[in-house]
Design a protein around this nucleic acid. Structure first.
Length: 304
RNA sequence: GGAGCCAUAGCUCAGUCGGUAGAGCAACGGACUGAAAAUCCGUGUGUCCCUGGUUCAAUUCCAGGUGGCUCCA
């Protein structure tokens, strides 16, 4: 453990005000920002992901924004490795760096680690998806019970994505998925200080609704239209885009699409809150408590 | 001034021939070690406008009040 190196995490639900505050703190600490956001990573996704503006990106160096394509396959596990590698380089030159974002799994992958899993061949995944589509989740459950009974016992058997994951690893390696999981949290060679931003629910929802209106003004619909042909790609399974796709397909009205974007963003925020509130290491603040946050961070850095 | 209609969940409304009530939307709670802005699970949250009356029992029937809407003046 290097006592002089610090990763400052600033987590929080969507639209709480992470971007503005982090820019300010980064400037104050004369450092840079690592984004932990599973959608801002993609260069094709802009308006709908509320990325920092070009101007803001110029003021403070950001990592993991627009550095992947929606055609790439990317996961939390890859994010862990990429960030650790980056941190090794960054910490040669500076002692402190910020990491901010709303993707709880990504943040955990960096802070606690995630068990290493092998890469899965495309055909295995697509075959399993075909099996799911043709024969339903029952069929997946049956396969799992046969191939990895340990996972079958502990897993949420109503969640197709979970079963699919376990099966693809098991089939790829010939070893049960459960045998890869140690669930041990990894030690990091640097200090981690977690803070979180939170607002009253009403206040947060109001900001979400308004931000969606702003996205529309900035051209969300045009962006979605351009990406419509890629709607089958996972990164496009995202609030703000998928609702517009439904509209383009004539399934819902434009008005309804906008209503659903707002609602789904609110629900997303709720899920983030549930995830983050489980993390006892997070010290919570209201985004307007700027001075308190800054002094808290400085204190954390100096007392370590 | 007179008459009629309405008042039930956050919203729009259904319902109870008298036995304390439900649907859509919204909301709320949770799970989550690799697609995570994803995926999955769970939950009616209620002075049935108020006050009396009738009744074993009133959100339901009756009367009055209050508020809203409409019509006649």
């Amino acid at each position: 453990m290097n006592k002089n190196k610090h990763l400052i995490v600033i987590a929080g639900p969507t639209a709480v005000g992470k971007t503005d505050l982090c820019l300010e703190i980064a400037k104050e600490l004369n450092t840079e920002i690592i984004s932990a956001d599973s959608r801002q990573i993609y260069k094709e996704l802009n308006v709908g992901t509320a990325k920092p503006s070009a101007e803001e990106l110029q003021k403070v160096k950001h990592y993991f924004i627009s550095n992947k394509s929606i055609h790439d396959f990317y996961t939390a596990g890859m994010f862990e490795l990429d960030v650790l590698e980056l941190l090794e380089n960054i910490f040669r030159e500076r002692d402190t760096i910020l990491m901010t974002g709303g993707s709880g799994l990504y943040i955990n992958a960096v802070c606690k680690g995630i068990d290493a899993l092998p890469r899965v061949e495309k055909e295995i995944r697509s075959d399993l998806i075909k099996q799911y589509e043709k024969e339903g989740i029952e069929s997946l459950r049956y396969s799992l019970q046969k191939l990895d009974p340990a996972s079958y016992r502990t897993m949420d058997l109503k969640n197709p994505k979970r079963i699919l994951k376990a099966l693809e690893i098991t089939i790829q390696t010939g070893r049960p998925y459960s045998s890869f999981l140690t669930r041990q949290s990894k030690k990091r060679p640097f200090n981690i200080h977690k803070t979180g931003l939170m607002r009253e629910r009403d206040e947060l929802y109001d900001r979400i609704n308004k931000r969606v209106d702003q996205m529309l003004e900035k051209g969300l619909e045009a962006e979605a239209k351009q990406l419509f042909r890629y709607k089958h790609l996972n990164p496009l399974d995202t609030v703000g885009y998928k609702e517009f796709f439904e509209y383009f397909e004539g399934k819902i009205s434009r008005e309804e699409a906008i209503r659903l974007i707002k609602r789904n963003s609110r629900r997303y925020a709720k899920r983030q809150i549930t995830w983050f509130s489980k993390d006892q290491e997070i010290k919570w603040f209201h985004p307007e408590q700027k001075e308190e946050i800054k002094s808290y961070i400085k204190k954390q850095i100096s007392t370590c």
